[in-house]
Design a protein around this nucleic acid. Structure first.
Lengths: 292, 292
DNA sequence: GCCTATATCTGACTTTCATCAGACATCAGG
DNA sequence: CCTGATGTCTGATGAAAGTCAGATATAGGC
């Protein structure tokens, strides 16, 4: 591909316009214009603030109001004042509305699977490229939040984490067993994930290592999320969590086989120390004093 | 990424909708609604049939006609009957129209480069993912056509071809010098490329090897175009070209270092033969008799 | 030449989308 | 309680997009 970057971007744009249009058109087919369909399908089950909805879809306040009234008239949603702020209103789908949303989901799902079925051989590769693009374009909306260390998001991350370790170390780390998940439970521990549009693309865990000391473990970034500065964000978040717990000091171990991790710690104020454990895979040990 | 394929596809869709919209919005900003702007910018310099335009943009015939009248009124295009079929009409931009198109191109280019500038670290990776997607989605519009073996498309392919060989063989094949381009000139030779939306994504060449015999060389498929059956199409095209030239038989050499090429020839009716040349990189020699 | 199909054009009409000003209720801070 | 800011709603209005039936001209087969 010797064309200029902008040419390549615009070629991509032309290529996806039709597909995006097709998936957009899946909002049609249920006798409702695109506007109301988009509003309805972007409502969360437990309700969404009108202001947030408007911002997300980029709609005028008058137009939004009119669309909501239309949906209300169809009996698909109901609105109520926000209990925290009487000026704001919350729109919530009714049971009929939920059924309608599910019908739209099914239409979109059908279209998506039809498209993928036509591409059996390159499907995985295509999806990987799509994941990469989705994560990069959503980079400003990546949220870091604590989850249950034994829950599905954590398990998904750990499975990928161990697969990556097995690959890097050339030995089988086995599947994630979840047996040490308790260590990462609050109050002394945390399990944080990075979430991009509902998908876990990175994680980091915190456990108690000793009096006043926490240990950082399980730092992992999905391949499609690398290069976005996510490791710094995750480390910052885990340090914040450690402060919340009350640790005055953090430590961690790592390996030469993970050179980017070693570089990350060195560049983020961590100090190399002597071995504090007998982890057979570790070659480097670091500590960092937490300032309030 | 443990989500279902359709979930991943739809996440991608959500992510690019905003970007595509932004690039779509670059059609605005010149005081003309989206419809006419889209029509104008999708006209080829040397004119486009109205029917084709309509099909491409998915417009109603009445609407198209009206938009074309509007652009004609602005002095940006002129229409004339198709000389081959008086029912059809061809719309062609005037010099003023070409200037206007160029202005839109510049707007789009600016937006694209602004977007890429915000992503310095992942730019190349993102573009590679975009190339992959663009090629796969455009798979039904890949055209194979002969080009000048010393021209820019051929040179671009050969540069990539030699870079790939250098990588596979672990020795430097040097840059493409273009000194043997004459061999691939008609009438005895051909240089075919596969074109996806203006981008060369594969090539194959034909030269005269002896009386009634042609040799296939320079088969290359861009990484982003693999898995789409393009190698079969290129081989089919070069066989067709060989028939046109009048060869009764084709031969080629290849290497163990290119196992997918060996498998391709074996599976496409080629028969392994004794060495017919002293190419130091070759380990396998094949021939195929051409039937009329 | 006649007939049917195709491509485009025109006029009349509807729907959808977008914009704007002003009304009204609520909130935050003094 | 007053004031300015914020969030939502309503009505008026206009632009853009889409739809449809019928008119006109041409192509191609008989």
């Amino acid at each position: 591909m010797t064309d200029s970057p902008t040419t390549r971007l615009r070629r991509f744009n032309r290529a996806v316009t039709a597909e995006v249009g097709a998936l957009d058109a899946s909002y049609l087919g249920r006798g409702r214009p695109l506007g109301p369909a988009r509003v309805l399908t972007s409502l969360a089950t437990n309700g969404t603030e009108v202001a947030e909805l408007r911002a997300r879809l980029g709609l005028d306040s008058g137009l939004t109001s009119r669309i909501l009234r239309g949906l209300e008239g169809e009996g698909l949603i109901e609105t109520q004042a926000d209990p925290d702020d009487g000026r704001r209103r919350i729109a919530r789908p009714t049971p009929a509305g939920l059924a309608e949303i599910a019908a739209y989901e099914a239409l979109s799902e059908k279209r998506a699977s039809a498209m993928l079925a036509a591409l059996p051989k390159v499907r995985e590769d295509l999806l990987a490229a799509m994941d990469r693009i989705a994560v990069v374009l959503n980079r400003d909306r990546i949220a870091i939040r604590p989850v249950d260390p034994a829950g599905p998001e954590a398990r998904a991350c750990l499975t990928a984490y161990y697969a990556e370790l097995s690959h890097r170390f050339g030995e089988d780390f086995g599947p994630d067993t979840g047996k040490d998940a308790d260590e990462f439970l609050p109050p002394a521990g945390r399990f944080l994930i990075a979430d991009s549009d509902g998908c876990a693309i990175g994680c980091v865990a915190l456990r108690r290592e000793g009096e006043g000391t926490g240990e950082v473990k399980r730092l992992w970034i999905a391949p499609e999320a690398r290069g976005l500065g996510l490791s710094h964000r995750l480390m910052g978040a885990v340090e914040g969590a450690a402060r919340d717990v009350g640790y005055a000091r953090l430590c961690l171990d790592t390996s030469d086989k993970l050179p980017e991790a070693v570089a990350l710690y060195r560049g983020a104020g961590w100090r190399e120390i002597a071995a504090y454990n007998d982890n057979p895979h570790a070659r480097h040990w670091f500590e960092k004093t937490l300032t309030r």
